Computed example of a mutant assay.
Amino acid sequence: MAGQVPDFHATVRTGTGKGAARQARREGNVPGIIYGGDLDPLPINIPFNVLLKKLKDGRFLSTLLNMKVEGHDDVRVICRNVQRDVVKDLPTHVDFLRLKRTSRINLFIPVEFVNEESAPGVKKGGVVVHVRPEVELDVVAGDIPEKIVVDLSGREIGDVIHISDVELPKGARTTVERDFVIANISAPSGLRASEDEEEETPETEVIGEEKETEAAEE
């Protein structure tokens, strides 16, 4: 995997059911469960403030974590669901899925555009339109890429970059078969307006000539 898998700490939750979950929340925790991996589900508690910060940081549901629970072996997990209070929109329960290093999962990977300023189209005033700031990929849990790199070197105004133009990280593949657009270089608004006027002008002139011809024939 590109980069180190971050640790995530939790404690064992004693008891299950609504009563134990309410008690966890009163103590400033968010109840959760770790499931999958041919092992029994493990009820856990996570400090509310820790989880809330992770959620605000973003990409929590697409980050592989090294779950550390006292008395249990470390395990790779990924968050599969965060239940929230319908009124306050705060987390009330979290589900984690155990993963093997060889497991394949679908994750949204961010796209990074490089050499944007040196692209000929940008130097001429073109604007890079980021159609997809992230792309869903099928990746191996033990080798999740940090990003997809799109090189804009040599790109001109009007160029369209498809997913097939991008070299995907090793072991990764797209989750859809169609060749979707990642970005394009659009003409500046002034140039687009000028082109529109040029396209309209010949049509106006032709109409005028037709009227003059009709008048002459009469």
Rank of each mutant, 00 (worst) to 15 (best):
D179Q: 09
S118M: 12
V127P: 00
V149Q: 01
K124P: 02
D151W: 01
G125Y: 09
A193Y: 02
V139K: 07
G125M: 09
I148T: 05
A119N: 11
V127S: 04
V135G: 10
L152A: 10
A193L: 09
I144W: 02
S194C: 00
A119V: 04
S194K: 10
V206F: 07
A187P: 05
R173V: 00
F180E: 10
V150G: 03
D165R: 06
E117P: 00
D196M: 11
G125W: 09
D143M: 10
N184D: 14
V176K: 12
S189A: 13
E116A: 15
L191S: 08
I207R: 11
T175Q: 07
I163T: 03
P133E: 12
E116T: 11
V149H: 02
K123N: 06
E116D: 12
E195A: 13
E203A: 13
P188D: 10
I144V: 15
G158R: 04
G158L: 03
K170A: 15
G142N: 12
E177F: 00
R178Y: 09
T174R: 15
R178E: 15
T175F: 04
D151S: 09
E177M: 04
L137R: 06
A193I: 02
A141Y: 01
K124A: 14
E197H: 08
V122S: 12
T174P: 06
E177T: 13
V176M: 07
V127T: 12
H130M: 10
D159G: 06
V166E: 03
V129Q: 09
V122F: 11
V150D: 05
G171C: 08
E205I: 14
R192A: 15
R132Q: 15
E136C: 12
E198Y: 11
V122C: 11
R173K: 15
D196A: 14
F180W: 04
E199D: 13
V149A: 05
P120K: 13
I207V: 14
H130Y: 06
V149W: 02
K124Q: 15
H130G: 02
D138F: 08
V139W: 04
D143F: 07
V176W: 00
D159K: 06
P202W: 15
E197P: 00
K124F: 04
I148F: 09
K124D: 12
R192C: 01
H130A: 12
D159A: 12
I182R: 04
G154V: 09
I157S: 03
E177V: 06
H130I: 05
I148Q: 09
E146Q: 15
S164A: 12
I182H: 07
L137W: 01
E199K: 14
I185Y: 07
V140L: 02
S118G: 08
P202V: 11
P202E: 14
A119H: 08
E167P: 01
E116R: 12
S189H: 02
A183H: 10
K211Q: 11
K123W: 03
A141F: 00
P133V: 01
L152R: 03
S189N: 05
E136Y: 01
E200K: 13
K147G: 03
R173C: 00
P120Y: 12
S189T: 11
E117N: 13
E167G: 01
E205Q: 14
E146H: 11
